[in-house]
Simulated assay, not measured.
Amino acid sequence: MARVPLDFQAFYQTYHRSYLRYALLQVGDEETALDLVEVVFARLLEDWPKVLREASVQRYGFSVLRHVIATHLSLARRSRALVETAAFEKVRVVVRRQLEVMESALGLYSAIARLPERQMDVIVLRFVLGYDMSCTAEIMGISTGTVRSHLHSARRRLAGEIGVRWDSWEAEEIA
């Protein structure tokens, strides 16, 4: 049996938890999310020399994750579970919120789910899962400036959809 390259092991240890949290929000089931993430890492390991030649290993890995999730959801004829799972992830973490806040959050999570893919990914990683800007950029394999740009566009779009004034809305209020 071939040895697993050390750089792959490091990549796996660095991103497995983030990928799993992201997949769980998308599919809504821990076992399925774990299976999908393992498929992602198996594909990456199989093509590891090719992956290392990519401009960004992180961006390539995250794109494989998104593709595997999208394929699974398509074959299962399901939509993303983000609306339900993101709301309940936040409720679990911040139990003290009242029911009216949760109803408002469901509308927000529905609006997030309708964002263009990259904007949605940045919002989910940054505010739903709580990663900071640099970690979000690292997970997605993009620059922090690109994260800021996607956040700016997503905040404008979300503010319009949920009916708040753009200039009075702080990004930290998303979660």
Rank of each mutant, 00 (worst) to 15 (best):
Val122Ile: 11
Glu172Ile: 03
Ser149Gly: 07
Val51His: 04
Phe41Arg: 01
Val68Ile: 08
Thr71Val: 15
Ser18Phe: 10
Leu52Phe: 07
Arg92Leu: 14
Val128Thr: 06
His152Lys: 15
His67Glu: 08
Trp169Tyr: 13
Leu82Ser: 00
Ser168Cys: 03
Arg21Asn: 15
Ala105Cys: 06
Arg80Ile: 09
Gln58Ile: 03
Ile174Arg: 05
Val122Glu: 11
Leu99Pro: 15
Glu100Lys: 12
Ile174Trp: 10
Arg66Cys: 04
Val94Asp: 12
Ser134Ala: 11
Ser134His: 11
Thr146Met: 08
Glu100Cys: 10
Val27Asn: 09
Lys90Phe: 15
Val4His: 08
Leu52Arg: 15
His152Tyr: 10
Glu89Ile: 08
Met120Trp: 00
Thr85Asn: 04
Asp121Pro: 03
His152Leu: 11
Leu82Lys: 02
Arg96Cys: 10
Val40Arg: 00
Ser110Phe: 04
Ala175Met: 06
Ala76Trp: 02
Glu46Leu: 12
His72Met: 01
Ala81Pro: 03
Val37Asp: 01
Ser168His: 05
Tyr131Leu: 05
Trp169Arg: 06
Gln13Lys: 11
Ala81Met: 09
Asp132Ala: 07
Ala159Asn: 01
Glu103Met: 07
Val39Arg: 00
Val95Ile: 14
Val27Gly: 09
Ser104Phe: 01
His152Met: 09
Ala2Pro: 15
Trp48Ala: 04
Phe62Met: 05
Tyr12Ala: 02
Glu138Phe: 08
Ile162Gly: 03
Val68Leu: 02
Leu75Gln: 08
Arg96Lys: 14
Thr14Leu: 10
Tyr12Cys: 02
Asp35Ser: 12
Ile139Tyr: 01
Glu172Met: 04
Ile162Glu: 00
Val164Leu: 02
Val164Thr: 06
Gly107Ala: 04
Glu100Leu: 12
Gly141Ser: 01
Phe41Ser: 01
Val4Ile: 15
Arg157Asp: 14
Leu99Thr: 15
Arg92Asp: 11
Arg92Asn: 09
Ser110Thr: 12
Ala76Cys: 07
Ala105His: 05
Ala2Ser: 15
Tyr60His: 06
Ala159Cys: 08
Glu89Tyr: 13
Cys135Ala: 13
Leu129His: 08
Glu38Val: 09
Met133Ile: 13
Arg43Val: 01
Ile139Asn: 02
Leu151Asp: 00
